[in-house]
Design a protein around this nucleic acid. Structure first.
Length: 113
DNA sequence: TCCATGACATCCA
DNA sequence: CTGGATGCCATGG
């Protein structure tokens, strides 16, 4: 419904949707890839709206500290951690272990805008 | 119509 | 080094 015009949200969805399995990225990385590092907040907000998008592996998106800040949005369960664990990503204390190892930089993996 | 908030990150003092 | 303020776009009240 409504006229879905091209917006930051769509770009965020596009990037998150292209995150390889077993990899994770940060809000700032996506925002920076879009050209606005300070729009990291919008990325998080986009994820909130991602509930309307079935192909948005939001569990692969964590904050700069590797903390599963959005876990609370997955139903209040360890679903987010479980999903990552299923993909081979170790989680401890709501934080991603070897964050740097599983880190996936869109700016490095995806073509520049 | 205007104001406040949002799953964050970065800069300045 | 630590704390506070700012920035971005969109949505909700």
């Amino acid at each position: 419904m409504e006229t879905q015009k091209p917006s930051f949200f769509d770009q965020v969805y596009a990037v998150v949707r292209q995150i390889p399995e077993g990899r994770i990225t940060s809000y700032g990385a996506i925002a920076r890839y879009l050209g606005s590092p300070q729009s990291a907040r919008m990325v998080g907000w986009a994820m909130n709206a991602s509930h309307s998008q079935p192909d948005i592996p939001a569990h692969r998106v964590v904050n700069r500290k590797g903390l599963l800040t959005g876990k609370h949005h997955f139903g209040g369960t360890h679903l987010m951690e479980q999903l990552l664990m299923e993909e081979g990503v170790a989680i401890q204390n709501n934080a991603v272990l070897h964050f740097d190892q599983h880190y996936w930089d869109p700016q490095s993996e995806l073509p520049a805008l």
